[in-house]
Write a protein that binds this DNA or RNA. Structure first.
Length: 348
DNA sequence: AAACCGTGGTC
DNA sequence: TGACCAAGGTT
């Protein structure tokens, strides 16, 4: 007979093994009555959407240093925030981040709502993030369901239904376990368990506080759960990027429209990305293709980008984009694919 | 409701 | 190289 899985056992484990993270108030301090700043909880949760903890850390420190409060962030210019987000990916998050910050600073008097329904109305805040903010910042007993929780629940219940079909049942399992006491610590504890013990590969079941209640442990199936529907193969698309350098060192760049891929970000003028991209240089010049192409993989396709360069005189006007002075140009402000193209012009 | 939306690490 | 994976949300 298997023992029941209980929140209290996970909380005891969390009290001893909680990860120290820049946005986290640890279990001891929380027991003393401390809670994290809701602004920092919200900001970290947006950054952590489909993004690893190591990738987020430096961005979180940079954002909270430059914009310590939601009012500071709300007052920041769009371009500065987009540049600060560059490299983190999923740029709609940054656009929604600003929308949300301005909404909170304006309509909400600077205070984040504490209830799920209101949180869900905020741009960029879905079921996971609403539950995370409610529980972690306010100790509302809401249930977080992220990839970690799905994996832990699939294993505890030895659920073989593949995702995403299994999402609803796994959510029910997770909700049934959420305690009324210390829901904020509990939410972080399940995710810590998934991140450090109940990992996708080679789970450390020997160290798991829930092993005695885990159906997959009994069945020996932990490592193969959760099941997932097979993914589609990514097609390869081709493209051309035009990197024009003016004789004074300025670079020709173009702000991308808010909608679509890399929306709102700075980038090199270029062709569409498809099977047969058309030549469409942004300024009259002698273009030379580099011998190496920039390769980059997006969420749903591979890109092979031909990089063309040209040196142009001071008095020539571009048809698209605008020249940015060398002193104002930082490659780190570009999304990664654009930075890769730039890096190719700097090598050798 | 399936498709779209980034990136870096790992195996 | 390539496939998989990571604290999802929007349309």
């Amino acid at each position: 007979m298997r023992e029941p899985v209980r929140a209290i056992d996970l909380l005891d484990w969390y009290d001893r093994h909680a990860r120290a993270l820049p946005w986290r108030v640890g279990p001891a301090a929380r027991k003393a009555g401390l809670r994290p700043d809701p602004y920092r909880v919200w900001l970290s949760e947006i950054m952590l959407q489909q993004t690893t903890v190591p990738a987020v850390k430096s961005y979180f420190l940079d954002f909270t240093t430059r914009w310590p409060t939601v009012q500071d962030l709300a007052a920041a210019p769009d371009e500065e925030v987009m540049a600060a987000w560059a490299g983190l990916g999923y740029y709609a998050r940054a656009r929604n981040l600003l929308k949300c910050a301005r909404l909170i600073a304006g309509d909400f008097g600077g205070q984040f709502p504490t209830d799920l329904d209101t949180l869900l109305t905020l741009p960029g805040v879905g079921p996971y993030t609403a539950a995370a903010v409610a529980s972690i910042a306010f100790d509302v007993p809401a249930t977080v369901v992220d990839g970690n929780v799905e994996r832990v629940m699939a294993r505890v219940h030895d659920e073989h239904t593949p995702l995403p079909t299994a999402k609803a049942i796994l959510t029910d399992y997770a909700a049934a376990l959420t305690p009324q006491d210390r829901p904020g610590c509990y939410a972080q504890a399940v995710m810590d368990l998934g991140a450090t013990i109940c990992t996708p590969r080679n789970p450390a079941c020997g160290l798991c506080p829930w092993r005695k209640g885990c159906a997959a442990w009994d069945a020996g199936t932990a490592a193969e759960l959760p099941k997932k529907e097979p993914r589609k193969k990514k097609p390869t698309r081709l493209g051309i990027a035009y990197l024009a350098r003016r004789v004074d060192g300025a670079w020709l760049l173009e702000r991308r429209p808010d909608k679509g891929l890399l929306g709102g970000m700075l980038g090199w003028p270029g062709s569409d990305w498809n099977d047969a991209p058309k030549e469409d240089p942004p300024i009259r010049a002698e273009w030379k293709a580099l011998n190496t192409e920039a390769r980059h993989t997006f969420t749903h396709f591979h890109l092979r980008l031909t990089v063309k360069t040209a040196l142009v005189p001071m008095d020539r006007t571009p048809q698209r984009g605008e020249f940015i002075e060398l002193s104002d140009f930082r490659p780190a402000d570009l999304p990664t694919v654009m930075r890769k193209a730039f890096d190719l012009t700097q090598s050798k």
